[in-house]
Amino acid sequence: MSSPYSYKVIKHFQHPKNVGRIEKPDAKASEGSPLCGDMVTLYLKVDPKTHKITDIKFESYGCASNIATGSIITEMAKGKTIDDAKKITWQKASDELGGLPPVKTHCSVLAVDTLKSAIQDYEEKHGLAKPEDIALTEENVKRKLKHVIDPRNGKDILATGAVKAVSIESGIVSIELDMEKSHQFANNMKDEITEALENLTGIKEVEIKFLG
């Protein structure tokens, strides 16, 4: 029978490993949005001395390829140091699963990206990130904002041009956003942006100016 999915993908899809959430995680990341059709949230517990991943869990709103990839990469990452876990690429995950249909690549890449973002979140929170990567600069703010998805169209808020201006002054980041203040997603946007920027060194406050 010519199912587009390998036996292993189906097995992981049907009985995904490490599913759920971790209360008080050491790090956490979400990628994607319901509009893209796929969304993954990943939680990490990391041993502060050895930097080994002691627990890892994920949640998925997505198709079989997305769920199976989440399952396999959490299996692969568990017990590894964060440096080793960073080396888990999409190709390795896909090989481990016996291949994925080309049309489903983006759904599984999303799961791998979420692991990378969660590790980055850990590094930034625990003084392991390069200082220049988390310095409060316009460049870093914009890099972080690329991970915030505009719920109106499923694309990141920089790509859509929703971010009209960014300015930084004594620890306060001001962002001009092309969205009405009364828009149903306005609060959600504020929360998402604040969370995306929280690890930047010396950030005190995020101010969103809603335009229109």
Partner: peptide, 21 residues
């Protein structure tokens, strides 16, 4: 929806979804 379709199929149920996936 695609996840639902696949899981239903494992139970022998054939149905369809409007999901882009």
């Amino acid at each position: 929806g695609e996840s639902i379709v696949l899981r239903l199929d494992m139970k022998g149920i054939c149905a369809s979804t409007g999901s882009a996936c």
